[in-house]
């Protein structure tokens, strides 16, 4: 199947991944396969909480198994720079319940 929503167009771009356990990992997409397994470079996690603003945890090079991925979003850098993450308080996302 050649057409369809592949991730080709996002390679070498900064993406925001939401995992099934509700984590949000931001990094540069380096590779992916049929099963949505992905390789992320220079990645960091954005930890949301209601007590304090978003914390950034440096993770580095990551491989995320496709089974554990909910959303792969294309991060708009301009838009992202307008958001004041350090003062953003929110509940962490709920885990996926199949």
């Amino acid at each position: 199947m050649s057409s369809g929503p592949g991730l080709e167009s996002l390679v070498d771009q900064t993406i925001s991944v939401i995992t099934n356990d509700g984590r949000n990992i931001v990094g540069v997409l380096k590779g992916f396969d049929q099963a949505t397994n992905i390789i992320l470079d220079e990645s960091h996690e954005r930890v949301f909480s209601t007590k304090e603003g978003v914390q950034q945890l440096v993770l580095g090079l990551y491989i995320i198994r496709g089974d554990n991925i909910s959303i792969v979003g294309e991060l708009d850098a301009d838009l992202d720079s307008t958001v004041d993450w350090s003062n953003m308080k929110a509940y962490p996302l709920k885990p996926v319940i199949h």
Binding site: I18, N24, I71, E74, L75, D76, A90
Partner: peptide, 18 residues
């Protein structure tokens, strides 16, 4: 308001399984 996690995402890929 409740889910600001994707504020800077305009295009996204959603895995069919979720």
């Amino acid at each position: 308001e409740k889910y600001p996690h994707m504020l800077s995402v305009r295009n996204c890929f959603i895995r069919g399984s979720v």
